[in-house]
Every structure is written in C-alpha cells, then in structure tokens.
Amino acid sequence: MGKHVLLVEDELNIIEAIRFLLSREGWEVDTHSNGTDAAQVIRERKPDLVVLDVMLPGKSGFDILEELRSHEQTADLPVLMLTARGQSRDREMAEKAGVSRFMTKPFSNTEVLTAVRDLLYVHGQRT
C-alpha cells in the first residue's frame, strides 16, 4: 500500500520542511492550507495519515478533528496534531477530540518521523 499523508498547515516554510522530511521517507505528501474545508478535503483525498496544525485560517484543528472523528469514514484515521501554542490545555482538548498523537512546535525532525511511523504501524496492526 502507498503511504499517503495529507499535511494541513498554513505556514509555507513548515510545509516545506515536513514535505522534505516525509517524502524522503517514501511518503506521498499532499498539502492543504485552509481550515474551513479541511475535513471535506481529507475525506475526498483519503490519506493514510493526516498531519494537522491547530491554528488554521477559518477553522481550528480541534474542530476539524472532531468532525473527522464523528464521520464513519475517518473515525479511525491516524491524526498527528502539531501546535505552536504548547499549553497543557491544548493537549487535553486534542486528546478529548480523539487525536492519535500530539506534538508541540518546534519539533525535532526525528520525533516527527518516529511518530508518523508509529502511527502507521499501529493503524496497520488494527486494520
């Protein structure tokens, strides 16, 4: 199976960095920069993994995650959440919304790669 990741992020430089990292790992990296229609785009493109920023124009990452979880198709989708706000309350909110993995910016590249691998593995085990 192909490794298809959708990166939902609005900072161009961060997109650039993550794209670089994941494509070298053999991922097919797809990006989207708007929060408003993110959930719909995710359902359409059917990625194996979503990397989701919290502060997005139009809609927050938490809302998008809740929408994903409430939808049958994306209920189990592995979601790695990245946030620059880094407060413990954000982590709680993310976990409540059903996040698979939560990381604060700035992240270490290896951590991101490990997290992505783990998520995919765990997901593979379950399905």
Binding site: E11, I14, A17, M55, A84, T104, K105, P106, S108
Partner: peptide, 14 residues
Amino acid sequence: SHELRTPMTSIRAF
C-alpha cells in the same frame, strides 16, 4: 507562544 514557536519551528526543522 504561537508567534514565537512558528518561526522557530521552521528554523529548527531546516
């Protein structure tokens, strides 16, 4: 936090 971490994320990643 957000405003500081965002550029730092790029800097660290690259």
